[in-house]
Each structure stands twice: as C-alpha cells, then as structure tokens.
C-alpha cells in the first residue's frame, strides 16, 4: 500500500512538472523579454544586427516554438538547466547556493511560526473568549492582514536603524564571503528576516489551531474525559493534542508555498541574498534560464511540502495507517 502511495505521488509530480514547464515556457516565449538583449546587456549598442542574428541562430531562436520547447525539455530532462546569464554560472549551482542561504531563513521562520503559532492557538482555544484569547486573536487577525514587506520595513527601522541591534542588510557582513563569516555573524544577519517571516506566518496557524482546539474541547470524547474528572488543561494536553496537532502539521507543511512567497518579499527588504531575491533579479534582468530553473525548483519545493503533509498524516493517523497497511 505504501509503495502504491509513493507511485501515485511520483506520477503526480511528473505530471505537475510537465504542466508547469509547458506553461512557463509559453509565458516566457510570449513575454517581451528578448534573450539576446538580456544576454548582451549594456553592450547592446556596440553589437550589429548581424552579430545578434548569429547569437540568435546559435541559440536556436530562429526555430519554431514547439521545436524549441522540445529541445529545452529534452535538455532539462537530462539535468542540464543551462547557464545563468547574470551570474555566468550553471543555473543549478546558482539555485543550490542561493537556496542554502534561503533555507536557513525559511527553516528558522517556519519552525518558529509553527511552534509559536501552535502554542498560541492551543492557549487561545483552551481559554476561549477570555481576554487572553481576544488578545491572541487580535494579534493574529492584524498579522494576517499585514503585508510582509511592511513588517520588514518597520522592524528594520526600529531594530537596525534606531537601535542598531541588527545589521541593515545581507546574509553576512559586507566585504566577507559566505565562507569567511562566522556562524554567529550569519545568525545575527538571519534574525530580523526570520522574525519578520515568523510574525506573519504565526497568524494562520494560530487561528487554525484555535478553531481545532475549541472543536476538540466540545467533542464527545472531551465531554467524556471531563466526566472522568479531567481538567481543561488535562484534556488539551492528554487527550486532544494529537487531534489538534494533526491538521496543524498538515497546514504547516502545506504553507511552504506561502513561506516561499513571503521569503521573496522579506529577502528583498533585507537585501538577503537568498533564492527569493535571486528570483526577483532573474525576472528584472531577463535571466530566462535561471528564472525557469527557479520556477521548476519551487514547484518541487512546494510539492515536497504537500507530500510531507500527506505522508505525516498517513503515518500519524491510525485510521489512515491501517489503510496503508502500517498497522495490523
């Protein structure tokens, strides 16, 4: 059963990648970005139309779109994502490096918002309609309707500009390379962007967990637990925790897509050289190989998040575990 589950998921991933690749190729082909212009950049004025044609021909730009797509897809399938025109480096190595930088930011923000959001949601749900619950809810609703970049700017103004506690930009001190920076320096630079992302990310998981907690506390099994003399705290931690955590974990994994989107904005505000910022650069400067590479990479990233959510559900929920044959 578990192999069937994996097979179905793999098949879906292949379908998804094919669909995303086709769609993004069509979009890029019909966009006003001219790959040759993007490639020659500032040297544009010094290049004759003949030379341009040579480049276009060498790249196969004179061929019909379907044939171009076929050749591109064929190269992608063998793992050749091309060379980034702005970094002059293979796309995969650019994505790899930038993703590692982003990964720590996203991992920190993701675990912070997950843990804090779940905790706050539990408290709010267990203390429904008290002042504490109202305050938590007010915070969550405010954050849910606040743009990431705005929070980033406010934090930057307070902690970096006025107080000077945190650096103003980048992932490590300017002038050093990634390898030269100490772990502490990198953490120091990571702090503010990660907090920005967490503050926003907390909202959804808090509100969701709160709803689930209230629902659990009103369920038949909680009423029965109360009849056995269990306190509210006892019900929340000894009885309902798993029932509340299960959907929360799913939600948290499924929110990887939003996290990625949030990271693009936060990295832009903090000039943090992660994958999100690279995406913006690739888009603005017309680096098509890199842009397409990032699109496909983020597809896999978001798919992995959803896949993990599904997998955890199957492993933790006994009803589904039985269906997948993991328990007798």
């Amino acid at each position: 059963m578990i192999t069937q589950f994996l097979l179905v998921k793999t098949f879906r991933l292949i379908l998804l990648i094919a669909a995303v690749a086709t769609l993004s190729f069509v979009l890029v082909s019909s966009s006003p970005v001219d790959p040759v212009d993007a490639y020659v950049g500032a040297a544009m004025l010094r290049i004759s139309p003949d030379q341009r044609e040579v480049i276009a021909k060498r790249w196969g730009l004179d061929r019909p779109p379907v044939e171009r797509f076929g050749r591109w897809a064929g190269q992608m399938a063998t793992g050749n994502f091309g060379v980034s025109t702005i970094f002059n480096e293979p796309v995969l190595s650019v994505i790899g490096k930038r993703f590692i930088t982003s990964f720590w930011l996203m991992a920190l923000a993701w675990s912070l918002s997950g843990a804090l959001g779940f905790g706050l949601g539990l408290i709010a749900g267990a203390r429904e309609d008290t002042l504490l619950d109202r305050s938590i809810r007010l915070y969550a609703y405010t954050m849910a309707s606040t743009p990431t970049f705005w929070v980033g700017m406010i934090l930057l103004m307070i902690f970096s500009v006025s107080l000077g506690w945190t650096p103003v930009c980048c992932a490590w001190p300017p002038g050093l390379s990634a390898e030269q920076a100490t772990l502490w320096q990198r953490l120091h630079h990571l702090l503010l962007p990660a907090i920005t992302l967490s503050l926003i990310g907390i909202a959804q998981i808090t509100l969701h967990t709160r709803e689930k907690t209230i629902e659990a506390l009103r369920s038949d099994y909680s009423i029965f637990a109360r009849a056995q003399g269990e306190s509210t705290i006892g019900i929340v931690f000894r009885r309902a925790l798993r029932n509340v955590a299960l959907p929360a974990v799913t939600l948290q994994f499924a929110s990887l897509g939003e996290l990625f989107g949030g990271a693009v904005l936060a990295e832009q505000v903090f000039a943090y050289p992660g994958l999100g910022r690279t995406t913006v650069e690739a888009g603005i400067r017309g680096d098509i190989p890199l842009l397409l590479g990032i699109v496909l990479f983020s597809t896999i990233f978001v798919f992995t998040g959803n896949f993990m959510a599904d997998l955890i559900y199957h492993l933790v929920d006994p009803r589904l575990r039985k269906a997948t044959g993991a328990i007798s």
Partner: peptide
Amino acid sequence: RGREIALIPQSITALNPLL
C-alpha cells in the same frame, strides 16, 4: 467526578479516535 460518580456515555464517539 470520575471517582465516585461515573458516566457510561451514549456512543463510541466518546472515545478519542486517535488514542
């Protein structure tokens, strides 16, 4: 509650499905 007075509830939904 639970020590000297006990309830036998109406349905199976009184048991937590995940424990």
